Amino acid sequence: MAIKAAFMGFRHPHILATYDYLEENMAAEEGLIIVACCEEDKKTREELRGQGRIKLTHSSFRRMIEEVDFDLLVVGDYFGKRGGIIKRTLEAGKHVLSDKPLCTSRQELEQIAALAEEKSLTVGALLELRYSGNFIKVREMLRRGDIGPVHSISFSGQHPLLLGTRGKWYNEPGKHGGAVNDLLIHGVDTIIWTTGMDFKEIISARNWNAGISHWPHFRNAAQVMLTMENGCGVIGDLTYISPDSFGYTLPLYWRLTFWGEKGVIESGYTWDHINLFAEGEEEVRRVEPCAPVRGGAIEACLRLINGSARDDDYSTAEILEMSRFCLKAQEAADCG
């Protein structure tokens, strides 16, 4: 039986890509059908209708959830609104697939966690970084022990600011919630998935407004220092200060470096290879990536709902725990 999906909120481009993927790939296979789409923001509704890209059915989430029979809600509204949407959806007995972050407060997250457990519902997240061909190969290499135990990791998640096209809600109080909670979960998910280790401690975190005084409420830069269960140290840079002219093409965009006892592995989301600096060798080895898995996070959520999850899929518990860790890191940054 096909899963009936509804969409709530289109104010982030991640959700547009999700809509396109489901419409193109899933409906034709009778695995999923899109039954309703809601956007409450008037300006966004007008833009979407002008583009002719999304088939909007509702302008009120309350009315959509009361009027439409669906199994899964895909959430893409601004960050500060998502927690309330997800809670209401779980209360109604429906599964959730959300863009990250799920919410902007730990109180909301614990309410979401309680509802998901009480009603045995899936909460998925659009964490696509792990499905990059580069990081699939990095996982193989690390799990095989190519560089031995990992003792140090650094990652860079720099983004262009793109003020001309970025939603103005990023600068509206209460709607964004900070760059740590916004971006860190991509790094956390990819590192856990590739290494097989969990995070243990938040050593320090900082979040600040870097160079955009005319957008004072958008803290567009962040850095974190973390540790993992084996004592491995992790340093991450999470910013919106990358040059706009390069878009998302810089080699620094989601670049991860793993330092092990027997060498170093490094790659990035935009790279066409993985670098292996093996102990005992003097030349870098360029390793070919695996094939990427388009729509991997979406399909993982659908498998969870259908009871056919794979060993390397995320679980609802993992999504919630990673979200909890990132919210704690954001709180640490907020406290200075």
Rank of each mutant, 00 (worst) to 15 (best):
G50W: 07
K55Q: 13
E46A: 12
S213L: 09
Y21G: 10
I54M: 02
E118Y: 07
F10L: 06
A6H: 01
R139C: 10
E66S: 13
D312K: 10
W215S: 10
L126D: 05
R285L: 14
V150M: 05
L302D: 01
V138D: 04
V284H: 08
I274Q: 03
S105V: 04
V180R: 00
V293F: 10
F258Q: 00
R45H: 09
R255E: 04
H214E: 12
W271G: 09
E140H: 12
V74A: 10
T122R: 07
K262V: 03
L129S: 05
E91T: 13
C37Q: 09
D311Y: 07
N220K: 02
Q51E: 14
D41N: 14
C326L: 07
E128R: 05
Q223W: 06
G93N: 08
E39V: 06
S242G: 09
T257E: 03
W193I: 03
N134Q: 15
V150C: 11
T190Y: 02
H186P: 00
S132K: 06
A205E: 04
E47M: 15
A179P: 00
Q158K: 13
Y240P: 00
L129P: 00
V35E: 02
L183P: 01
L163F: 09
N207M: 13
K87E: 13
R53V: 12
I34T: 03
R294S: 09
E40F: 08
W193C: 01
A297M: 10
L276K: 10
A329D: 02
S59P: 13
M64K: 05
L126H: 05
D198K: 15
K137H: 05
L184C: 07
I136F: 04
I3T: 15
E118T: 14
G93C: 11
T195F: 02
F135V: 04
V35T: 08
T249N: 11
L22T: 07
R53F: 03
Y240G: 15
G178A: 04
G336V: 10
G83A: 11
G164W: 14
W271H: 13
L304N: 13
V180C: 08
K42F: 11
K200E: 12
T57A: 02
S59W: 07
I235R: 14
D146I: 11
P289N: 09
